[in-house]
């Protein structure tokens, strides 16, 4: 059934791929972007009803690149189950919905992940009072774990590899896990690191909880488009890359205008002063300038939505630039 679905899906968007998503988007006058129905830090409406978040910024960056106006986005809320069919059917142009890049999604479902905008991974959270500083010290602990997820399997693997024992307290949802943890019915809660941070932020006193340094799985989250429309894939990919490269060169919303006559050649290329890189993407040459001016670089978006100063308080970790000890790395702008 799943296979049949994906075959149907593939044939449908194989047809629509020829139309050229970029041209469709330009003719329509706004971008259709799929986000979550609400996930702290990634996509959520603010008090005045504007969507904000790391994934939302990704959508807005693409809109800024195509139209020079980051507000020309229509957000479609999707759930874990509806996201892929919604993208496959052409109802949205791109999906930025904390989706883990896996082989089967990339290949079998017929999508193209254009990059990674957040490196997530499964981690552990314990009460500070437990006095534990590493997950390897958790011998005999009771762990709150969502059943039937890859999280459960990763946990078993990790504890087996380190030759330590644990007791699992199976639970169904994140809300349930939170209540169990706060009530002291389990010593450890394990899920994706961003989920841990959001659980921590919802406690009465976040300082009572500590997220351990071990990350035991790879969850690269990134924006994706339909397979086969490479021109459009390039536009989304280089919108993301632009934000990362801008951070490398220290270009921010505030200082981008002052850098228009910088003496660094790559900065001039990014800002469209030199070379015709925008035209190669069939965008205007100042597309990267528009992204930086309206959204900011990756760091600015990160700090605004999930960084240490937000209630989520997720450190940069893997999401730091490769020069700062992370693995964020974008190909050169040339």
């Amino acid at each position: 059934m799943k296979k049949l679905l994906s075959i149907v899906a593939v044939s449908v968007f194989a047809l629509s791929a020829n139309a050229g998503t970029l041209d469709d988007v330009k003719n329509r006058g706004f971008l259709k972007c799929g986000v979550t129905t609400g996930l702290a830090g990634f996509a959520a409406p603010d008090d005045s009803g504007n969507w904000t978040g790391l994934d939302v910024d990704m959508c807005r960056a693409v809109a800024a690149a195509v139209f020079g106006d980051s507000s020309k986005v229509e957000f479609t809320t999707t759930t874990g189950k509806s996201r892929f069919p919604t993208l496959a059917s052409g109802e949205i142009d791109m999906l930025a919905r904390n989706t883990t890049w896996t082989l089967s999604r990339d290949v079998n479902l017929g999508f193209e992940f254009v990059g990674v905008n957040f490196y997530d991974g499964q981690g552990f959270m314990v009460p500070t009072s437990l006095g534990v500083s590493s997950a390897t010290e958790l011998d005999g602990a009771t762990v709150c774990i969502q059943t039937g997820t890859t999280t459960e399997l990763n946990l078993a693997d990790f504890f087996r590899a380190n030759n330590i024992g644990y007791e699992a307290l199976p639970i169904e949802t994140n809300d349930e896990a939170r209540e169990n943890l706060f009530a002291g019915r389990c010593d450890v809660f394990t899920t994706d690191a961003s989920g841990l941070s959001s659980t921590r932020a919802q406690s009465d006193n976040p300082n009572k909880w500590v997220v351990l340094p071990e990350i035991i799985s790879k969850e690269p989250l990134g924006p994706l488009v339909r397979h086969g429309d490479h021109q459009w894939g390039d536009v989304v990919r280089w919108s993301l890359n632009t934000m990362i490269i801008a951070e490398e060169f220290g270009l921010t919303q505030a200082n981008v205008d002052d850098n228009m006559n910088s003496n660094i050649p790559e900065v001039l290329r990014i800002l469209g002063v030199e070379g015709g890189y925008g035209e190669m993407l069939e965008l205007s040459n100042d597309f990267a300038y528009n992204i930086i001016k309206q959204i900011g670089n990756y760091s600015e978006s990160y700090e605004r939505n999930v960084g240490p100063d937000t209630p989520l308080a997720i450190g940069r970790g893997l999401n730091a630039l490769w020069t700062d000890g992370g693995i964020l790395y974008a190909p050169p702008f040339r």
């Binding site: 129905t37 609400g38 996930l39 996509a43 479609t76 809320t77 759930t79």
Partner: peptide, 26 residues
Amino acid sequence: VLIVGQLDLLGIGRAVLAAQTWMGLS
């Protein structure tokens, strides 16, 4: 309809709870 991504009254409630400024007031 929340499960297929439409934000009805309950869906909006959940979206509101995802805002960092109001987290935890479920």
